[in-house]
Every structure is written in structure tokens, then in C-alpha cells.
């Protein structure tokens, strides 16, 4: 599903170049549940940003489902992102001024789906995540776990093939964290590819492969066979 070849990310400053990612070579198959781990500053979030096409300034080759992302302009990358990718963040990142239902509707509206269809999709996801009773509430009226639940619901509402979860349980206590991880596992079992970033070994165990990053290098887990 994903093939990264010699992907590099560098920041240039007056003091010289700072490498954030170095020669990343990575293959991820359809249906994988990948965990990326590593210390702070290892480049985990940067790698997520590149895979999620939120970061455009990098070098190398990136193939997503037969699409050569590195050859696409920004507009086409946005299209690809909208079609295949859902994001979950540590800080939930729901929009405070929108209700739960509106937050769920937002990614659909960016996909130019008609209103009637969107309403149906939002109703389905509310039902599926058992948050129908919360649909009119604003994020600040929900607990952290509930907010993250909505964030996951928002990530999956567009039926993405890939979910990128950047420390999805980082702000939750353990019982809420487990609920979210179970949910991600369920989604993975239903066929969605998942890449998560976590510092927690227990949550890492939910995945089928762990990739270790350090100082911008993949030090372990680049392929099922090990580091490249």
C-alpha cells in the first residue's frame, strides 16, 4: 500500500542543515497495523505528516496505492489525502465551535458530498460509535475519551483506507486509552490500514509491526524482514 524510498526531510538554517528524516525506506502492506516508536525528536510526527501528505517539503519517492505521490502537485495530493487518509491526534483536535455532528460532517463537506448523503453518513457513524446522544454537544462538553472517540469517528467517516493516529491515547487515562485502541484494532480487523505513533508498549502491542526511529533514521522494523 505504501512504499517509501530514500525519503529525507531537512531544515536549513543559518547554522547549516538539520536532518529530521534520513533515507527512510519503508513498505507497508494493505491491512497492516504499524506502530512507530522512538524518542522525542526522532522524526515520528514528521514521518506521519509526510505519509499523510500534510508536509510537502521532502525528498525521495513515496508511492501510495500505485500513486507516485512525489510526482504529484499539491492539489492532487490534497485529493489523494481526502480519498484515502484519516487522521487522529493526541490532542483530539476537534473544532471547538462545531457540535459533534458538525465536526463529523466537516471532512465530508471537504469531499463535496451532497448534504443528504452526508447526513446519512453522519447518522451511521454516530450510531456505530454509539454517540448519537452526544451529537448536539460541543467538544468542551465531552470527556477526553469521548472527544477522542469523536476524533476517531471523524477520521473514519470518509471510509479511509489508511488511518494515521499520532499518539491517539497520549492524553487519555488507561481505560479510555484501551477503549480507543480496541476501536482502532476493530477498524484494522475490518480492513483499514493503521499507522500509530505511541510511547506505550502496551498500545504498541496492538499492532503487527513496530518501527523504531532514532535521530531521523529507521533503526528497526522498516520491513517485515527488519531494518533496511
Amino acid at each position: 500500500m505504501i512504499k517509501l524510498r530514500d525519503v529525507e526531510k531537512v531544515y536549513e538554517s543559518g547554522a547549516g542543515k538539520t536532518w529530521v528524516l534520513r533515507r527512510i525506506n519503508l513498505d507497508i502492506a494493505d491491512g497492516d497495523f504499524i506502530t512507530i516508536m522512538g524518542p522525542s525528536g526522532a522524526g515520528k510526527s514528521t514521518l506521519m505528516g509526510i505519509i499523510g501528505m500534510l508536509d510537502g517539503a521532502w525528498k525521495g519517492e513515496y508511492h501510495l496505492l500505485e500513486n507516485a505521490v512525489h510526482k504529484l502537485d499539491n492539489r492532487r495530493r490534497v485529493e489523494l489525502h481526502k480519498k484515502y487518509i484519516g487522521f487522529v491526534f493526541q490532542q483530539y483536535h476537534l473544532l471547538d465551535n462545531l457540535t459533534v455532528a458538525e465536526n463529523l460532517d466537516l471532512p465530508l463537506s471537504y469531499r463535496d458530498i451532497k448534504k443528504a448523503e452526508r447526513e446519512g453518513m453522519v447518522a451511521d457513524i454516530l450510531d456505530r460509535f454509539q454517540i448519537v446522544g452526544k451529537k448536539a454537544l460541543f467538544p468542551n462538553q465531552l470527556s477526553g475519551g469521548q472527544q477522542q472517540l469523536v476524533a476517531v469517528a471523524r477520521a473514519v467517516i470518509g471510509k479511509p483506507k489508511l488511518i494515521l493516529a499520532d499518539e491517539p491515547t497520549g492524553s487519555l487515562h488507561s481505560s479510555q486509552g484501551k477503549m480507543i485502541m480496541d476501536l482502532l484494532k476493530k477498524l484494522n480487523q475490518d480492513g483499514t490500514t493503521i499507522i500509530q505513533v505511541t510511547h506505550n508498549d502496551a498500545w504498541a502491542a496492538y499492532g503487527n509491526r513496530i518501527i523504531q526511529l532514532a535521530d531521523g533514521w529507521i533503526v528497526d522494523g522498516a520491513s517485515k524482514a527488519g531494518a533496511v
Binding site: L54, R75, V78, H81, H93, L95, L106, Y110, A155, G158
Partner: peptide, 16 residues
């Protein structure tokens, strides 16, 4: 900035 970043991350184009 956070709101705009979220919108971008869930698929909003810059034009939108």
C-alpha cells in the same frame, strides 16, 4: 492556527 491546521489535516484544500 490550530483550527486551520485541523481543517487542513482532515482534507480541506487551501482554496477552501
Amino acid at each position: 492556527r490550530r483550527e486551520i491546521a485541523i481543517r487542513l489535516s482532515i482534507g480541506a484544500s487551501r482554496w477552501r
